[in-house]
Simulated scan of single mutants.
Amino acid sequence: IWLARNRATFEKKLIKTPFEIVFAMCSFLHYWTGLQQGDDAKELRAGAEQIRASIMQLVKMCDAA
């Protein structure tokens, strides 16, 4: 959220949809899993994937409406 706010404020890049923020968060979580080891990495990866899958369903529902 903070990075999106900074881009909007300082780079004048407007957020087109809140989904952008969530997908960016998932990207950072996936990156963070590479810095973790063992079960922590597996749990972070699984959590990020669950969030991404849920958001994809929401995007499809919004597009269908």
Rank of each mutant, 00 (worst) to 15 (best):
G47K: 06
A24S: 11
A48E: 01
I55L: 06
W2D: 12
A24V: 03
F28V: 14
E20T: 06
D40H: 02
A24N: 13
W32Q: 08
A8Y: 10
A48M: 08
A24M: 10
S27H: 11
N6V: 08
G47V: 02
D39L: 02
A24D: 04
Q50N: 05
A48T: 02
E11I: 07
V59T: 02
E43L: 06
K13Y: 08
F19D: 03
I21L: 12
G38R: 05
A8V: 14
A8Q: 14
C26Y: 03
F19L: 05
R7Q: 13
A8I: 12
E49N: 03
V22P: 00
K16S: 15
A53K: 11
A65D: 05
D40L: 07
A64S: 14
K16A: 13
A41K: 02
A24P: 01
D63C: 09
C26E: 03
M61S: 04
T33W: 04
A46W: 02
K16E: 09
S54T: 05
R45D: 07
Y31P: 03
D63G: 06
L58V: 13
D40Y: 06
M25Y: 13
W2S: 10
F28Q: 15
F23G: 00
H30L: 14
A4W: 05
I15D: 01
P18F: 13
K42Y: 02
L35D: 06
G34N: 13
G34D: 07
P18S: 03
M56R: 15
K60A: 09
L3S: 07
F28Y: 14
A41V: 02
K60I: 09
A4P: 00
L58S: 11
E49V: 04
L44W: 09
L44H: 06
C62P: 09
L44F: 08
Q50E: 04
F19G: 00
D63W: 03
L58N: 04
V59N: 00
S27K: 14
E11M: 05
V22L: 05
Y31G: 14
K60G: 07
Q37R: 05
Y31E: 08
Q36N: 12
K16I: 13
I55Q: 04
S54D: 03
L58P: 01
E49L: 03
M25F: 13
T33H: 06
C26R: 01
Q57E: 11
A41E: 03
Q57H: 09
R45A: 06
L58E: 10
H30K: 10
K42Q: 14
G38Y: 02
L35P: 00
C62D: 14
A65W: 12
D39P: 01
T17C: 08
S27R: 10
Q37P: 01
M25Q: 08
